[in-house]
Amino acid sequence: MTGLRKRRVSRPPLVLVALAVLGLAVFVVPLLGLLARTPWRDLPALLTGEIVADALRLSMVSSLAATALSAVVGVPLAWVLARVEFPGRSIVRGLVLLPLVIPPVVGGAALLFALGRRGLIGEPLNQATGLVLPFSTWGVVLAVTFVAMPFLVITVEGALRNLDSRYEGAAATLGAKRWTVLRRVTFPMIAPSLVAGLVLTWARALGEFGATITFAGNLPGRTQTLPLAVFVALESDRDTAVALSLLMVAISLAVLVALRGRWWRSL
């Protein structure tokens, strides 16, 4: 009996395995193409240029700032969506998920119409404070946050909804104040999802292109992140473009693999 079961487990249906391999190929084949084109000998020289350093710094700063901003406003948003009943909640949830679905270029254009110098909010903001968001590093952070924050909100909201509220109830019964319950019970229990959401948000922010170039423009040292540098280099200097692409793949893969075992089990 056990022998039979063991054999079943060790021999999965061939069709499934074949399809799975095909599925994996979708991800792996482009990577192989990139590796095949990589100018390995020139790689160190290509990756130490000023433009690469600028783009790497900007990508790190903007993706981390977007992750922090998402944590500050996205986690409360997830909490409200999970715990507060209000009319139109499903519409709000749809609005939050919208950036996952619409093309980032559309998001960038919408940001420009809203927060540009002549935009709905941007114009009064500019007149009151002199602040101009497009074509600035702040513009990059905003565009990247727009595209990446939904990953944090849906992950944390899902975790909060799945949380057994009896733990929080018990803590409250024992006299804990609401903030204490949040800090000592709720957050520790959703910590794995929270971290997973933050990592996903950061990874998406690092790869953001469309909203950034549409809203924040493209200038080395100020708004040209790694994806933008790859895009520009692809049309002028393919070796640099490939080297930059490889750098992005390496950074993303390293972080995702390193965190996978520890934090992703909840996903």
């Binding site: 482009p30 990577l31 990139l34 469309g210 895009f231 992005m248």
Partner: peptide
């Protein structure tokens, strides 16, 4: 490479 949509790539 990068899992994002980009204007000219999109084109």
């Amino acid at each position: 490479m990068i899992a994002v949509s980009e204007p000219a790539r999109a084109r």
